[in-house]
Amino acid sequence: MKQISKKHPLAIRWFHWINFPVLFTMIWSGMLIYWANDVYHVGFGDKTALKLFPDWFYAPKRLMDTPLEYHLDSRLSEGMAWHFLTMWFFFFNGLMYVLYTAISGEWRYLLPNRHSAKEAFQVVLHDLHIRKEPLPPRKFNGAQQIAYTSVVIMGIGSLLTGLSIYKPTQFAWLTTSLGGYETARFIHFWLTMGYLGFFLIHVTQVIKAGWNNFRAMVTGYEVIDVPASASTSKASPAEELRP
């Protein structure tokens, strides 16, 4: 026997899916801004061992007689225009999400607790096929709680470092407390790289978890197995493993 169970509230599904194109636009426009002054590299003193974006990235070789010129390093004004328009959507969507989870009580599923770290470690072992035991039957396991809470904190970090390099004179106190303009810009950049890392792991896990799990983020419902002692009580439905 099966049951159809409500999983994700409508509001959270909207926040989630709005955030997807908004964050994508923030990252892309942010890269257009970065490429205008591509300074991050691995090196010592004046010696550069590794550039983040090597020269061929900006002027790739001709491919089948078609010049591959995207002028990625000269699209600064375009990047800034997109960035400083989209930032409002990123900010308000994130703010509404945090307020909603706080007021609705959804935060109870999302905030890590003192067991989360140990559980997250077990999840990693499980995913690496080292640990055989099934994962905890909850909406979000320890690894998810840590990941989904961290990404909100990263979002706040992006807003603060962003504000400190957007208006470093008006918010001089903030810029200075973040270690100055260049440090704040560095943090702002690596938070973005953090989102890309989050995205890769997230998508991998969603693919692994399968259609039932993905569909729940669209429709809000998932199909679950009825436990052996079949009961329609709402109290504690057994839930299958899901990310």
């Binding site: 026997m1 409500k6 669209v218 199909v223 329609t232």
Partner: peptide
């Protein structure tokens, strides 16, 4: 009924499939 409840009554495999498809269609 489902929209107002957290959990449906136990359903047969086919019935669950039919209902979730109905629910999904609108969302997708």
């Amino acid at each position: 009924e489902l929209r107002t409840n957290e959990l449906s009554e136990p359903l047969s495999e086919e019935e669950a499939k039919r209902q979730i498809q109905h629910l999904s269609r609108r969302s997708f």
